[in-house]
């Protein structure tokens, strides 16, 4: 099987490819089943889940920006809540044989523990802690910008689940290395980075903010250099496996993240433009490995020449 080139193991999770999809950009995976062989993905990080249902933010939630190189969103973690996810969504997803990584968000450190415990069930491959959502008032980004709070949230989740705990870091910090080290010391099994960058857009005709929530999270090709730099820095700071993401739209972008030290990559906003983009990235990575005489993607990880 050609995908042997890309098959890998991440936190003990067997993955057919190291290409995942980023939370919030791929629903629960099933929405893309017409375009993607979901089992070929390394995993699907499903829509951010909270204890109680959330309706998200009012008003405009999405805007194209940065001269067509980016997108702002302020969905605000709309989701049906963990109980509905477990009762209705998760059973529906089993037929796709994909690795399901549940992204969770809480208002307090205890919320993360409760959620991690609830989701310690068959069918969930790992938990991803969203400590960096820029679009919710309480919790969210506070946990992602204060190393002590990030460590506390990580420890709380770790102590309540047997599943691998991946911590998703915010780029809205002065030094990503400090955050990476804090969650590593607190027992995280892996780190994913980056979440969106805080941004804003103003309509000069109405003189009002474009987004209903005023500010939002910036994603898309314009954030890729920032994401790549942060993956590179995190790689220097910690020995944990890393999922690199931020603005990946093609296999060439993915190769850069592997070279910078990512063990896997996740594709986000690009799924909106081309719902089959993850498959194209897998194909491109295979061709690149073959052309360079490599037998497995692991040979590429951290192979940056200096």
């Amino acid at each position: 099987m050609q995908d042997n080139l890309l098959s890998t193991s991440f936190c003990g999770i067997r993955m057919n490819t190291p290409v995942l999809t980023a939370s919030g950009t791929f629903g629960f995976g099933e929405e893309f089943a017409d375009f993607v062989a979901l089992s070929r993905l390394g995993g699907v990080c499903v829509k951010g889940t909270t204890l109680a249902p959330r309706r998200g933010n009012e008003g405009v939630r999405i805007a194209e920006t940065a001269g067509g190189a980016g997108m702002l969103n302020c969905i605000g973690l709309e989701n049906p809540g963990a109980d509905i996810f477990l009762q209705e969504t998760l059973p529906r997803l089993t037929k796709y044989s994909m690795n399901i990584i549940v992204n969770i968000s809480g208002s307090t450190p205890e919320d993360y523990g409760t959620l991690a415990e609830k989701l310690d069930v068959p069918g969930v491959a790992a938990i991803e802690l969203n400590i960096s959502c820029p679009n919710v008032r309480e919790g969210g980004i506070v946990f992602g910008t204060d190393p002590r709070a990030a460590a506390q949230v990580t420890a709380e989740a770790k102590s309540h689940t047997g599943k691998p705990v991946i911590v998703k870091l915010s780029p809205n910090v002065t030094d990503i290395k400090v955050m990476a080290r804090a969650v590593e010391e607190a027992g995280a099994d892996a780190i994913s980075l980056i979440n969106t960058l805080l941004g804003m857009e103003i309509d000069i005709r109405t003189r009002k903010p474009v987004l209903g929530n005023v500010t939002g999270g910036l994603s898309g090709p314009c954030v890729k250099p920032v994401a790549l730099r942060m993956v590179y820095e995190a790689r220097q700071a910690v020995s944990l496996p890393l999922i690199g993401m931020g603005g990946i739209t093609c296999w060439q972008d993915a190769v850069q993240f592997f070279l910078a030290g990512a063990d896997a990559v996740a594709v986000g906003t690009a799924n909106f433009v081309n719902p089959a983009v993850t498959m194209e990235i897998c194909d491109g990575l295979e061709a690149y490995l073959q052309a360079n005489g490599m037998k497995n993607i692991r040979e590429l990880i951290g192979a940056l020449e200096q």
Partner: peptide
């Protein structure tokens, strides 16, 4: 306003008599 058009991004979520729904899907 829509992002994905597939019911994944929730940019177009609305309130309905049957709870939250997505305009695109």
């Amino acid at each position: 306003r829509m992002g994905c058009g597939l019911g994944a991004c929730l940019s177009c979520a609305i309130d309905t008599a049957h709870g939250r729904r997505k305009v695109c899907k």
